[in-house]
Design a binder for these strands. Structure first.
Lengths: 151, 151
DNA sequence: TATAATTCGGACAAAAAACTCTTTAAGGAG
DNA sequence: CTCCTTAAAGAGTTTTTTGTCCGAATTATA
């Protein structure tokens, strides 16, 4: 409804990394397994997050991915601007190239406040907080693996 | 951010049809031209809306598409359930197959109220009202055609 | 009845998104 | 130095979405 699969994977992975000891690289393979997500595809996504400075990567033994210094405080908005593109929140809901208070589509003024709620939420949620929530054990970062579902 | 191109075209077309004299079929070609949208693709979308009972279609001369009796009062939610599928609003923002108050992803409880705002908005807006708004001349249903942009 | 205008239906094509594979480079450990 | 492990890079594949094309069916009108 809102996020591409790529963004979903990115957020899940970042939260997972944020739950792990900072400075200790996490393997792509482990993340993919934990999230039940295709590893080769996830690798591309993590690479991209590295290029944009959100993650650090290390090759060879003891390699893997860490959140870059300070990036624990990153907001979901920050992440999504990397994965969905910089004008993620700037597009008209009906797809008009130009849609503003002055040149509005018929949904514009109803959509605007709702969109602002979404933006606030995304600006408010940080990787740190989401990781903390997960660490309480009350929330799920991925579907239960098939092995956990009794037949 | 929220709607597929198919849904955007569908909503635009339905609003346009709703602005026209009821009972007078509107040509696919005219809608496509007005909205600046690929006609053959739009035709498929309109066909689908017919199958689902939102539109009536007529072939041959004086043919075209009309809103079915009563469907002026249709909400955007109704339309989107046809174009995006019945559980349009039911999916987890992080893509988990199971995500509910009991088995929540870490975004669930922040996302839920925002999603409810979206749902309310979609349930509130009808084709009629949107058409009325367009008829005031204050809103745009499509981008200005290239011909209208001075160089 | 013939003709032109329209939607319908299905196959097809192109573009974008999601996903895979293989080779290379880098780093740690013996 | 050599081997193993890891990410990087790039090409390639599959699936989904978006968009095109064409022939058949339907209908009003001359």
């Amino acid at each position: 409804m809102v996020l591409s699969r790529t963004s979903q994977y990115a957020i899940q992975a970042l939260i997972y990394i944020a739950t792990q000891a900072p400075g200790e690289p996490v393997l792509n393979r482990d993340i993919a397994e934990r999230l039940n997500v295709p590893a080769a595809y996830l690798a591309k996504i993590l690479q991209n997050l590295c290029k944009h400075g959100l993650l650090d990567s290390f090759r060879g033994r003891l390699g893997g991915f860490c959140l870059r210094e300070g990036m624990h405080k990153s907001t979901l908005m920050h992440v999504l601007q990397l994965t969905e593109g910089p004008d993620f929140t700037k597009n008209c809901i009906l797809g008009l190239k130009e849609c503003s208070d002055e040149t509005a589509c018929p949904m514009h003024f109803k959509w605007k406040p709702v969109k602002n709620k979404i933006i606030s939420m995304l600006n408010f949620m940080t990787l740190d907080e989401l990781a903390k929530a997960v660490l309480t054990g009350k929330y799920r970062l991925a579907d239960l693996p098939a092995s956990a579902i009794p037949s």
